[in-house]
């Protein structure tokens, strides 16, 4: 089943950064595979790391050397298709940053259940950072979850376990 049938990208369709890039620091992952007319990722990037080009329907290209990991593009992407990843140099943990528009809002230190692109549970993670770029996108949180390194290519969503959340 391809992504047009399932709604889920598989290895072949994904263009993930290599391990070296991931270990260097925060790196964006753009899971945008269709030529839809859209360019805010390009225009929002302060470092010029993302290029869409003259045709607004082009796919964005990332220059990993320019990306500073600021997360603005994660906040701005209308398709919620940009994530940010980082691996610890030793490879004992990873962080995935996910755009989040649901209630209740997660809090730092909270344990969450991590989910993959098809909504299946992967494991658990810990919320390490919750930011909001109010000027760029109101009511969207940019949430960073610390997870086991081996989960990094799978985790793209999380849910707050029932009873776990303090109101």
């Amino acid at each position: 089943m391809n992504y047009k049938q399932s709604g889920v990208l598989t290895g072949e369709e994904l263009r993930l950064p290599d391990n070296e890039t991931l270990c260097r620091g925060k790196t964006i992952i753009i899971e945008c595979v269709e030529n839809i007319p859209c360019d805010p990722c390009e225009t929002s990037c302060p470092k010029g790391a993302i290029t869409v080009g003259g045709n607004i329907c082009n796919l964005p290209k990332i220059d990993y050397t320019k990306c500073s990991g600021c997360g603005l593009c994660v906040a701005v992407c209308p398709g919620l298709a940009i994530f940010m990843a980082e691996k610890s140099p030793k490879g004992d943990w990873a962080e995935i940053t996910i755009p989040y528009e649901l209630l209740p809002h997660p809090k730092n230190g909270e344990r969450v259940i991590t989910m993959d692109r098809s909504g299946c549970d992967v494991g658990t993670g810990e919320i390490v950072r919750v930011t909001e770029f109010k000027k760029v996108q109101k009511s969207r949180l940019i949430v960073t979850v610390r997870i086991p390194a081996e989960d990094l290519n799978m985790v793209r969503h999380f849910r707050i376990a029932e009873g776990n959340h303090e109101q």
Partner: peptide, 9 residues
Amino acid sequence: MRIDKHPVL
């Protein structure tokens, strides 16, 4: 079934 809290609205 009123929506009390909404993440966006």
